[in-house]
Design a protein around this nucleic acid. Structure first.
Length: 264
DNA sequence: TGACTTGTTCAAAT
DNA sequence: GATTTGAACAAGTC
């Protein structure tokens, strides 16, 4: 699922393939992905005869700067993907948004489950502020992290996944961060000692940075425990106990009840 | 067949 | 008002 590291790798993908090339035309076939305020006509007029000049990521949002001043915002939902390719009539792609460049290449944004979002955004910071998203998980300072997390009275896992507190962490990475920090995901955030929250902050940075450096490739993150194989009934590499499953914060959670301490 | 999954948003409850 | 909880959304997988 696209969390911060996956979105960062989409950012690199755009940087490597799609910048500085004039856009000839677009095709847009999935209006349900458009955020309120962006109509298909506005998308078309903003993109056609324009050029992507740079990229910016905040949490799980990717913003692609346009030469004429605005930004194309992409959110990948659960199943959003990008593909830059040479069109081939025999192998048509399924897409929600197709961008055709003057150099003959295409960029397709596809989204099988249609939970992604697309919009044209004027000022990126204003978009983030107006919608109330918290600081990016890799840019937030330790002090801000502690201040934001330590007062919450709900499960630490729900806090880490709440984009309005800290942006970028989703279900899968939250399980790994809490496993590495040895904290039970249902622990109440404001009951966790500050020294322990500092560890959560450090693990968050360590794991996300490493995932970013490997383009979120699970095979290269195999030295972590839960990434890639989230299941109940596995043997915990630390205490050799059996891993558990519970729904926490409305999401499936895997953890080791024996070595992840529960703070209540 | 239908339960389960995900990130976000919205409504309801506290 | 702020925070928390839980349901809803879509559609693919098993």
């Amino acid at each position: 699922m696209p969390e911060l590291p996956e979105v960062e790798s989409f950012k690199k993908y755009m940087d490597d393939h799609a910048l500085h090339q004039p856009i000839k035309a677009i095709k847009f076939v999935e209006p349900s992905l458009l955020l309120t305020g962006t109509t298909p006509a506005r998308l078309k007029s903003a993109l056609e005869d324009n050029t992507f000049e740079g990229t910016f990521r905040h949490g799980k949002f990717l913003f692609i700067e346009l030469k004429r001043g605005e930004n194309l915002m992409m959110h990948f939902g659960m199943t959003g993907e990008l593909e830059y390719y040479t069109p081939d009539a025999r192998k048509p792609r399924v897409y929600a948004l197709l961008i055709m460049f003057k150099n003959g290449k295409n960029l397709a944004f596809s989204d099988a489950r249609k939970l992604g979002k697309i919009a044209i955004v004027g000022d990126v910071q204003e978009f983030i502020d107006q919608r109330g998203y918290g600081p990016d998980a890799l840019k937030v300072s330790l002090d801000d992290f502690i201040a934001l997390v330590s007062k919450r009275r709900t499960a630490i896992k729900a806090v880490l996944m709440n984009q309005k507190i800290i942006a970028g962490v989703g279900n899968e990475f939250s399980d790994e961060i809490l496993f590495q920090s040895r904290i039970h995901p249902a622990s109440v955030a404001n009951r966790i000692p500050v020294a322990k929250l500092k560890e959560v902050y450090e693990q968050t940075r360590k794991i996300l940075k490493e995932a970013v450096s490997h383009n979120a490739d699970r095979e290269k993150l195999d030295h972590y425990f839960f990434l890639g194989h989230r299941k109940a009934g596995l043997t915990c590499p630390r205490c050799k106990g059996e891993t558990s499953f519970e729904t926490i914060g409305g999401r499936s959670s895997y953890f080791c009840a024996a070595c992840q301490k529960f703070y209540e």
